[in-house]
């Protein structure tokens, strides 16, 4: 208990100091501390989408929610009480639960949004893919990312079939239906 109190005091001093510096016109909102937070903690909400940025220096995460024309990048803050921060990785899909503190959205829990494989399709690890390529066993390795990503860097022997062209490209695959097809893209997307 004693130790906790000793830690708490320096932290609150640091928080107040952080709001000074060269941002002179910053309003100091942290001074009212916990009290304000409990009063204004009204709503919890959820953002699901692709993480497009995370800054540890600023303590913010940017996530794209919605699709197509309705896609919007939302910014939420995080702090040392945010759980699952390791899932806020640029390029990965995540589910962020946040709450409003004052006018700020603060992430409380971040969970990975895992890609679901169609029934009957299994996962293969990079080491196994490498072995497969080196073994020379019959297979087709397919890169589902946009063509420019493939051009820059792809796995040895992979062919490029961006996912939006997959339907029309099916006829270019070997006719033997039991041939091993291995798909990959830019991660858990």
């Amino acid at each position: 208990m004693r130790r906790n109190a000793a830690v708490f005091i320096p932290v609150s001093i640091v928080l107040v100091m952080l709001t000074w510096g060269c941002a002179r016109d910053t309003s100091v909102t942290t001074a009212t501390g916990g009290k304000t937070r409990t009063v204004q903690k009204q709503s919890a909400s959820i953002y699901t989408g692709k993480i497009v940025g995370r800054s540890n220096k600023a303590g913010t995460i940017s996530i794209v929610v919605g699709k197509g024309d309705r896609a919007r990048t939302m910014m939420v803050r995080f702090d040392d009480r945010t759980r699952g921060l390791e899932h806020a990785v640029k390029g990965r899909a995540a589910i962020i639960t946040w709450e409003l503190r004052g006018s700020e959205k603060v992430a409380t829990v971040i969970k990975p949004k895992l890609a679901k494989l169609p029934p009957g399709v299994t996962e293969i690890k990079p080491a196994e893919v490498r072995k497969l390529i080196e073994s020379g066993a019959d297979h087709v390795l397919i890169d589902s990312r946009p063509g420019n990503r493939y051009d820059q860097a792809h796995l040895p022997g992979a062919v490029s079939i961006p996912v939006d062209r997959m339907k029309t490209a099916l006829k270019t695959l070997p006719p033997r239906k039991d041939i091993l097809l291995v798909f990959y893209c830019g991660g858990y997307t």
């Binding site: 169609p118 589902s144 991660g187």
Partner: peptide, 23 residues
């Protein structure tokens, strides 16, 4: 992207499909 592509291949009748999810 790749799970969706794998799904399309499955619909087309391919029976031996894997996905390197880690990408």
């Amino acid at each position: 992207m790749s799970p969706r592509a794998a799904g399309l291949a499955k619909e087309a009748g391919y029976t031996n499909i894997k996905v390197m999810l880690a990408g």
